[in-house]
């Protein structure tokens, strides 16, 4: 083996499908994929910025959120991901919002109380207890690893890793540039 071979890195290898959680106009020309960890303070800091981006570029960009829990450094990250994935149909983003606005309350008791509030029927709490979405979360994580996720949050703009900061101006410029390319 003397032939050096080139490996292209930092490209989204798992296409966005109907299985993904999408926020914003489903038909928007630009797709922002975020790999995030609900206990990660940087993801918490990015959250209002991404929300603002969706507002100021409404119709131009849609957000896809995928799980990338770093459980060795964030002990509540896996349970928080289960919380979001276990939300009742149509309530994923409500759960997502709750997590990023209550990052200081991700302990088991607080998550259980929040789940009971979001779904009084108890099935959300049951799904969390049984970790029924563990495979999906693992699938998200491994797809992220294969795509070059290098920490959280990692963003992909139309499939290309965003190797820049996530200030609103930077993300907006990246989205606008991608919109021009996609014509």
């Amino acid at each position: 083996m003397t032939t050096p071979f080139h490996i292209e890195t930092g490209r989204l290898t798992v296409p966005v499908t109907a299985e993904d959680h999408v926020r914003g106009d489903a038909g928007a020309p630009v797709t922002l994929v975020e790999y995030g960890d609900y206990q990660c303070p940087y993801c918490g800091a990015a959250y209002p910025i991404v929300e603002e981006l969706l507002r100021v570029r409404s119709g131009r960009v849609r957000l896809v959120f995928r799980n990338f829990p770093l459980t060795d450094v964030h002990p509540h990250a896996a349970a928080a991901a289960e919380f979001a994935e276990s939300a009742p149909a149509g309530r994923f983003w409500d759960a997502h919002d709750w997590l990023f606005t209550h990052q200081d309350r991700l302990d088991p008791d607080s998550l259980a109380a929040a789940a009971a509030a979001l779904d009084p029927s108890g099935s959300m709490a049951q799904a969390m207890d049984r970790r029924v979405h563990a495979d999906r979360i693992r699938h998200d994580f491994l797809g992220g690893v294969r795509s070059g996720v290098n920490g959280t949050p990692t963003f992909f703009v139309d499939g290309r890793r965003h190797d820049d900061d996530y200030a609103l101006a930077t993300l907006t410029a990246a989205v606008d540039a991608a919109a021009r390319t996609s014509g």
């Binding site: 890195t9 690893v145 070059g148 996720v149």
Partner: peptide, 10 residues
């Protein structure tokens, strides 16, 4: 720049 793990796995 953190290179991630995708290159290693590929």
């Amino acid at each position: 720049v953190n290179p991630g793990a995708d290159g290693i796995l590929a």
